[in-house]
Design a protein around this nucleic acid. Structure first.
Lengths: 190, 190
DNA sequence: CCCTAAAGTGACACTTGTGTTACTTTGTTT
DNA sequence: AAACAAAGTAACACAAGTGTCACTTTAGGG
């Protein structure tokens, strides 16, 4: 290295995540990011040709981290423990659905790397469902999961449920327990 | 009227909805809207000082329509019928949660009308939960709803569940029935 | 010690969006 | 048919984002 870098890739991705969630895809700009990191825009352009390339690269990183988390489910025995694990992971990665939806806003770019990254991203998205397919199938075979619900929907449902906005500031523990209860048994009294 | 208008408020709001959902809050511009309506930007500025004012006005309109729909629940007897009605209304207004979240992106503007509209919007949001409080309380009293879940969360949960993205293109009827089933009884086998 | 090369900067040219205004168009009113 | 007023346009000045490039800074190797 000829000169020390003012920001690491980790710092850059962390800032990207924060600013993307705060301002949305279109509201996110290199100026915002550069200001946040206390560097000039030019410095960021040294590493990424444009917004599409940066964000697609960032999304790939986030998605891989998430998939790594999810793979942990394979080390766990017993359906109920797996479900508990999955819900915990989902809460830990609460924001990723929002990021994934943003990833879909990336326009088809002239930038080759961004195009390739977008394809990889779609692959990872499928792979994620694939990795969890085993869990769902096992649950249905063991008569633990309602077999009449399509596999993908069960997963999408868990995904969606952990992202309910907490408008009424219900304390974290009660919040998580209540959502878990509803995911498992619904809103009706048992 | 001195001259026929090229676009009605209804057309304008419909276009606003479409473009907001397509491009997001920051991605939405007067140029986009003007092009869509085949008028000049200036024509829109005749009615709204800026984006904040237009969008807050639009959100107020959408929210009032939605509240009107929701009020229909008071004409219905019996908890289960009310729940069916509510879920049907939620599916009909599938996109409104997304719009409400966007409404929160409106920055505190210098524009007085936008500021007032934002306050009204917050009021309507609370009123919506208030209007449905009766339904939830009744459900809990009649021992139909799980009483250990906070009222606001039960509503937020229904809200959120109807907005699951249908990535796998499951047919509408199966989709709706499955989600209804999960809202009521969860993902586990009964 | 000086040269190299990566890291970073600042300025430039360009594009896109904003808000305003003088002007034109077009129904209605008298 | 003249005049009026609301509707709409086109052009201007400005602000903000983009992408590039010549230039400066700085750690390390010869």
């Amino acid at each position: 290295m000829a000169r020390e870098r003012k920001f690491s890739t980790d710092e850059l991705f962390q800032a990207t995540k924060l600013l993307l969630l705060k301002h949305g895809y279109e509201g996110f700009t290199f100026s915002l990011l550069a200001d946040y990191l206390h560097v000039s825009r030019g410095a960021i352009y040294k590493y990424y040709e444009n917004k599409e390339e940066l964000i697609s690269e960032f999304m790939l990183y986030e998605m891989n981290e998430f998939l790594l988390d999810i793979k942990g489910i394979e080390q766990i025995d017993g359906f109920q423990d797996q479900l508990d694990f999955l819900i915990r992971i989902m809460f830990k990665n609460e924001k990723i659905q929002q990021l994934i939806e943003m990833g879909k806003e990336i326009p088809k770019s002239t930038n080759e790397k961004a195009r390739v990254n977008k394809e990889k991203l779609d692959m990872l998205h499928l792979q994620m469902y694939h990795n969890l397919q085993g869990f769902v199938l096992k649950g249905k075979e063991e008569k633990k999961l309602n077999a009449s619900i399509p596999d993908g929907l069960i997963l999408g449902y868990i995904f969606q449920s952990v992202a309910i906005p907490n408008h009424f500031d219900i304390p974290q523990t009660e919040w998580v327990d209540s959502i878990k209860e509803m995911i498992c048994h619904g809103i009706l009294k048992r």
